[in-house]
Computed example of a mutant assay.
Amino acid sequence: MTKQFAYYFLRHLLRFAGASKGYTLAYCTHGGCDMPDAVSSNIAPMEGHGFYNRNSSMQAAGNASALALWEKAAQSVDLGDETLVIADYGSSQGSNSMEPVSTAIRVLRERAGTERMVEVIHTDLPSNDFASLFTTLNEDPASYLRGTSGIFPSAIGRTYFELLMPPGRVHLGWNSWTIQWMSQNPIDAPDQVFGMQSKIPEVRAAVIEQQARDWRLFLELRSQELRPSGRLLSLFPGSLPERIGWEWLTGELWGTFCDMRSDGVFSDHEILRINVPTAPRRLVDIHAPFSEGGRFAGLEIEQAEILEGPDVHWGDFERSGDAAQLARGWTGMMRAFSGPTIVNSIDPARDRVELVDEIFNRFSDRLAANPQRHDHFIAMVLLRKIGA
């Protein structure tokens, strides 16, 4: 019996025997852990108490590459006498929203008048750390509220996989580093924490299918909220046809879990449940809904491209040779976005906080022992709402 045949045999056997209730088997080889899938969904917002704000320099650097296109969008949208509305879809704790929103306000007011009222609506999951968002708005020197008036911020604590605002309300929509999150986990990857990095074709296919549904739904909903000629800029992890990226960080995190399984810290079933449902998109995936006539749900793509993402820590490492510092930088970033979902994936009867501390301490040690450049890609998409 080949290992692949054994995997599928066990998976379907366990489904029949009650895998949906959480009873699973698994085995690890020196190539990794191979397990059947009993799909779990434990998606959580970013690490709270301002942790994400302090550990999202990679995301901030990626945002900087989109600001020129964002300014072009603000120059292009039609304006009347109405209050101007900017939506920040997936704001997290706000630090990386300050510059894009400030840019939009500046450009819109240059066109509409410096006294024009502007409403800024931040959205994220209901469990998001909105306290840090409003602290950032009130205290950060880079806050878009500094030195101005007539700006009205608010927040909506709901998923953007549902309608968030009345139709035709939004002039400009900013969406960065969020749409890589799937609305649900389509399948538990038995050989990776991130399904797209799995070597099992069925797992990768399930991820692509889920992302396709999510992308179409996201576009349909945002189209309803945009005004005619409104623009939506979405920035998220991308991939090339021949290269996904993120291999070093995701590989070391998976190695951490296999080490902990070997040391008896986690059982086979616990490892199976630990999945972070995020994945990059290719240009073909981005364009797929627009394949007929170049339009979808009242939207058209003005620009879409995949860029090489910056490694914000590698330059310091080349100068200092400090592998521990490099590891701390990337560990903070990985924990900031994946830590809460991993916490939710662990049996609540266990000491989740202690276990997640151990996971990322071990992960940091692995990175320091094997320092590499973080290769990743950024997808940047500007969409226009077709006028009435």
Rank of each mutant, 00 (worst) to 15 (best):
Q180T: 13
A60T: 14
H122I: 03
A38M: 06
S132T: 04
I179S: 09
F317E: 08
H287S: 13
A74I: 01
V39M: 08
R146G: 01
W246A: 00
M380V: 13
S176A: 14
A64G: 11
E71R: 14
D322A: 12
A61Q: 12
S41H: 15
L163A: 15
E242P: 04
D191R: 08
L145Q: 05
Q197D: 11
L25V: 09
S95K: 14
Y52S: 06
S57A: 09
T103F: 02
L10Y: 02
S40M: 11
V120Q: 11
R328L: 11
A142D: 14
P201G: 05
F161P: 10
R213I: 09
F130E: 14
L10D: 15
S183Y: 07
L10S: 14
W246Y: 07
D191N: 15
T83C: 08
R281M: 12
G157S: 04
C258H: 05
G31Y: 09
E225F: 05
F218W: 13
Q93P: 06
Y27S: 13
E47S: 01
I274N: 02
Q184K: 10
H374V: 15
R222S: 07
R231I: 08
E162G: 13
A323V: 07
H30K: 15
Q197P: 07
P277G: 04
I86N: 01
F236V: 15
R281A: 07
T136S: 10
F360Q: 04
Q197E: 12
T159A: 13
I43S: 05
A279D: 00
R282Y: 02
E119F: 01
V284Q: 10
I378N: 03
V101S: 04
A142L: 14
Y160R: 08
H313C: 05
E225C: 06
D188M: 09
F218E: 10
N42C: 09
L355A: 01
N138S: 12
Q372V: 01
M58W: 12
G94W: 02
P100D: 03
K199P: 00
K72M: 12
E110N: 05
G195A: 15
R158W: 07
S92E: 08
P340K: 01
V207P: 11
L125D: 03
N275M: 09
S57W: 03
A297Q: 07
S234K: 00
I286C: 12
M165W: 04
T256L: 05
I200N: 13
R273A: 12
E209Y: 04
R328D: 11
N55Y: 10
R243M: 14
L145V: 01
R216G: 01
F236W: 10
